[in-house]
Computed example of a mutant assay.
Amino acid sequence: MSALPAIWAIAPSHTYLLRHEVLWPDMPLDYVKLENDAEGYHYGTFQDDQLVAVISLFVEGEEARFRKFATDPAYQRQGIGSALLHYVLAEARRLGARRLWCDARQDSAAFYARFGMHPEGEVFYKGPIAYVRMARDL
């Protein structure tokens, strides 16, 4: 078993290709760019110098939200996404957040539950994909 990969802060633009390929491959690339990307913290996980997972964190006061969490399918189910999410939980705390949330694809809710996140509110849709807000205190 190889060691867990390195996690580094990256530029927002470095997240776009993986966001696009994993989350919204049928949409134009601009669809995965966020209006407030410049205000966020962006992290990438590297395996053998290859970017294999990305996540973006936005902190406003004591509340933090992560968005556009994507792991290359070839690297899923190897602990890489879990390591990245643990890192972001610690970063959110370090940046002063006391609560963390995301809009999770409903089929990923069980993954987030393993990190102490709980569903809040009703299921909603972005296009054909069902989402649920997941949150936890830090």
Rank of each mutant, 00 (worst) to 15 (best):
S2V: 09
A3S: 15
P5I: 08
P5M: 15
P5C: 13
P5N: 14
I7W: 13
W8D: 12
W8G: 06
A9C: 11
A11Q: 13
P12I: 06
P12V: 04
S13Q: 09
S13H: 10
S13V: 07
H14K: 15
T15I: 05
Y16H: 06
L17C: 08
L17T: 10
R19S: 06
H20C: 11
H20T: 09
H20S: 07
H20E: 03
H20M: 06
E21K: 13
E21Y: 08
E21R: 15
E21M: 13
E21L: 15
V22F: 05
L23K: 07
L23M: 12
W24D: 10
M27R: 15
D30N: 12
D30Q: 07
V32Q: 09
K33D: 02
K33L: 13
L34K: 12
L34D: 13
N36A: 10
A38S: 12
E39T: 11
G40V: 02
Y41F: 11
H42C: 02
G44Y: 00
G44V: 05
T45E: 14
Q47H: 11
Q47F: 04
D48R: 12
D48Y: 08
D49E: 12
D49A: 11
Q50C: 10
L51E: 02
V52W: 02
A53M: 07
L57A: 00
F58A: 01
E60C: 12
G61C: 09
G61N: 08
E62A: 11
E63N: 13
R65M: 03
R65F: 00
F66Q: 02
F69M: 04
A70T: 01
A70G: 06
T71S: 05
T71R: 06
D72K: 02
D72V: 10
D72Q: 06
P73I: 11
P73E: 11
Y75M: 05
R77Y: 06
R77W: 01
Q78I: 02
G79Y: 06
G81P: 13
G81T: 01
S82W: 03
A83K: 12
L84N: 01
L84T: 04
H86Y: 14
V88R: 00
L89E: 14
A90N: 12
E91A: 10
E91C: 08
A92W: 03
R93F: 03
R93Y: 07
R93S: 09
R93I: 10
L95D: 01
G96F: 00
G96I: 01
A97L: 07
R98Y: 06
R99K: 14
L100K: 04
L100Q: 04
W101Y: 13
C102L: 11
C102R: 02
D103C: 00
D103S: 01
D107F: 13
S108L: 15
A109L: 07
A109D: 10
A109E: 15
F111R: 13
Y112F: 14
Y112D: 01
Y112K: 03
A113M: 07
A113Q: 11
R114Y: 03
M117K: 05
M117A: 01
H118I: 07
H118S: 13
H118T: 14
E120K: 10
G121R: 04
E122K: 15
E122G: 08
Y125L: 04
G127Y: 04
G127N: 05
A130M: 02
A135S: 15
R136S: 09
D137V: 14
L138N: 10
